[in-house]
Amino acid sequence: MEASNAITGSFDYEILAEIGEGAYGKVYKARHLKNKLDFVAIKKIKLEKGADRNGVPSFMIREVAVLRKINTFDHPNIVRLLDVCASCSAQELDLTLVFEYIDMDLASYLKSVPECGLPREKIRGVMWQLLSGLDFLHTHMVIHRDLKPENILISSRGRIKVTDFGLARLYSFNMALTPEVVTLWYRAPEILLYSSYLSSVDVWSAGCVFAELHLLRFIGAPPQEEWPENSPLQHRSFWSETGTHTQNPIANMDELGKDLLLKFLCFKPMKRLSAAEALEHPYFRTEMEALEHPYFKTETEALEHPYFKTETEALEHPYFKTEATSRVVEVWP
């Protein structure tokens, strides 16, 4: 791994242009001072230590901590954090995150799509990669909580990378969560209804993105039985009749795609597909088996990626077998 894991104070990048602005700082395109062909995206966060601040904001701690955790696995569909520079003076805290540079996000990509829409294989490829990334995050106890086209990068070669972990957090048992997550359009019903939620909220958002790739938005009504009992909002305040399920939401979607979409947008989180299950869905499998479409090269590459190795390795790791004995005994004098 070329990236150093240490937090450095030095800064070896030359800023080229501003490419985005967030609530706390700006994002720049930059290049490495030595290797001028190495482009990076630099996110600069500057915080004045005002009296009203509660120290370093949670979102910064979470974003960097989550990226630190998952970057050790180097998943192809997660943006790579190359470096962190932090400096801290009496009045200010400067934090600079250096990411790999990806040309475009999915939102601007979709704007450039011709009116006839994206080819189905393209959509399938995007979704497959997106779900691989999600599955990876969920396996490592990370919920992204802000999945939307703006936070999904797409490289010129069609590689999908999930980015922006400002709202992400590690989940665990009995964990309190705030309902104020996910951009409204992509927010799963259980969040809107103040129920508990889990990794399945990301799958809902992925479903929204899936529909959006078909250049459409749609909505259907959940049956009354599935409405949470103690919700502050009543079912009848939204829908006068039940059973207004959208049966044929998207004209240009094939049957398997529709089936998958409805499973993504399943109202009840427990019934909703997980990212891992979605990857097993025939929507992806048939095409995978069908032919060696050049497009799928990336997917097969992804399957052979060390990420999957580490997962199986982890399960077969000697730590969990015989070595456990020797290791533990070692600690004992």
């Binding site: 969920h138 490592h140 009995n174 969560l177 309902p179 103040y194 427990m270």
Partner: peptide, 18 residues
Amino acid sequence: LSTPLIDWQNFREYGDTC
């Protein structure tokens, strides 16, 4: 209302891998 709790039943198939 703002802090719903995850109960372990919700901690679905990813539990063991985690």
